[in-house]
Design a protein around this nucleic acid. Structure first.
Length: 407
RNA sequence: GGGUAGGUGCCCGAGUGGUUAAAGGGAACAGACUGUAAAUCUGUCACCGCGAGGUUACGAUGGUUCGAAUCCAUCCCUGCCCA
């Protein structure tokens, strides 16, 4: 089966510059294609993960992914679809973030034997000569056309700086450079990148009359159209120290019924028949599908062992069976015993402030060893511990396994 | 550079001297109902305090006033129009 059809069947594809030609191209030759990742944070998140899934499908089909790290474009910041300007990052932060991205990408894409490439656009963008660059590619861009691009729509109302306006040109330049260096023929990206992608495709076609293609994939949104992968704390990160495998697992375990199918087909490698079977389960049966979904994604992102641990912990916490060893834990210093539970939990960042803690306790949202705490002055004592731990529950779903430490 | 409209809590947005920790909406959080779902309903939603109360907050800094998010000055930032 042609990868194009695989991608289409699984619901990845949003827009393509030349649908039939791309289909034929992917069927007939091994194609080098690229996806760019701008180093806006020190970890990739679920949005990036979707792109990596696309890369993985393409790689499995024999094509060559080029992961482009935006060490150059990251200095400018992509205004696409945004209402405000991105915070300008310092060179040090950008470099650090690039390194973090590199490490994470290596976990998902197979780089051995030239099966994939990882390059940084800082290598060429940062040493460009302004006049030369302008004269080289400037004539191929129409400002009128650029201004009409969908990606600037929001910003034309709120204000767009020249710095950011140039982002599109830099991205187009990247495609040209990758085409020259690695014979890269196609650029892929999230659908919000469509304008930037056609800019590159058109540049190559105009300037060199080279065939170039662009393909965008669906953005990961809920059935209500909201962005997926947002947690109370912010993004759902792929870095286990920023979002623990358990939290990660729980996120997917709790998606809406109506999003199960989409998530299964986009974020796991399960065969489509299985995706369809699971997502057509009804009522509480669909929980089975959610368990599979959570397990599968966690497995891809954090490995089988972590996925199993997360699943085990969830089972112990929510069904009361199995071992609690892998439940999210919290160490309490032994010498703090006898203090107010509330103070300890604020100290441990379970609550953002004492006010919040009190409120939750007053709303009966906190329980210790399955008993609701109603007294805000409740002390935590050794009597609460058995077998060296006690279980704390905040709200309906947040569990902590408290253990004692000696320092 | 000139004119003009603005900068309010996580976001949007009302408020133009005192009863305003600041309407309303959204998000979020807790509870009920459930399937670790959705929808719905109820409550909460700056910080400290058991409480009375206190502290900090409406772009920044200074000032007027018994009292300012609201008035004045200077500065910074943004939109629009003109050059």
């Amino acid at each position: 089966m042609n990868v194009y059809d695989v991608l289409k069947e699984r619901g990845y594809i949003a827009q393509a510059t030349h649908e039939e030609e791309i289909r034929a191209l992917l069927a007939n030759e091994k194609v080098s294609f690229y996806i760019g990742f701008d180093p806006t944070a020190d970890s990739l998140h679920v949005g990036h993960f979707l792109g990596m899934m696309v890369m993985a499908h393409m790689q499995r089909a024999g094509h060559r992914p080029i992961c482009l790290i935006g060490g150059g474009t990251g200095t400018v910041g992509d205004p696409s679809g945004r209402t405000d300007m991105r915070q300008m990052l310092t060179d040090d932060i950008i470099e650090h973030n690039c390194n973090c991205f590199k490490k994470q990408l290596q976990r998902f894409i197979e780089f051995d034997e030239g099966k994939a490439l990882m390059v940084n656009n800082g290598d060429w963008l940062r040493k460009l000569n302004y006049i030369e660059m302008l004269r080289d590619i400037g004539p191929h861009f129409s400002v009128n056309r650029m201004l009409a691009a969908e990606c600037y729509k929001q910003r034309l109302e709120k204000g767009l700086t020249f710095l950011e306006f140039n982002y599109m040109i830099m991205q187009a330049y990247d495609f040209m450079e990758l085409n020259r260096r690695y014979n890269c023929k196609m650029e892929m990206g999230g659908d919000d990148q469509w304008s930037n992608i056609i800019a590159g495709v058109e540049l190559l076609r105009r300037k060199y009359e080279t065939p170039a293609y662009g393909l965008t994939f669906t953005l990961l949104t809920t059935s209500e159209g909201k962005k997926m992968g947002k947690t109370a704390k912010g993004a759902l990160w792929l870095d286990p120290s920023k979002t623990s495998p358990y939290e990660f697992y729980q996120y997917w375990r709790n998606v809406n019924d109506s999003d199960v199918k989409n998530c299964l087909s986009l974020l796991t490698f399960l065969p489509m028949e299985e995706v369809i079977r699971l997502s057509s389960l009804e009522n509480e049966q669909i929980n089975e599908a959610k368990k599979v979904l959570a397990y599968e994604i966690t497995k891809i992102v954090h490995g089988e062992e972590e996925a199993a641990k997360a699943q085990e912990a969830a089972k112990a916490l929510f069904s009361g069976q199995g071992v609690l060893d892998n439940a999210p834990s919290l160490k309490i210093s032994a010498e703090m015993l006898g203090s107010r539970l509330l103070d300890l939990l604020v100290e441990a960042k379970v609550f953002a402030s004492k006010g919040e803690a009190k409120r939750i306790i007053q709303q009966s949202g906190l329980s210790l060893n399955n008993e609701k705490i109603s007294d805000i002055d409740r002390l935590l004592t050794s009597a609460d511990f058995s077998d060296g731990f006690c279980m704390l529950k905040k709200g309906k779903k947040k569990h902590y396994r408290l253990t004692l430490s000696n320092n």
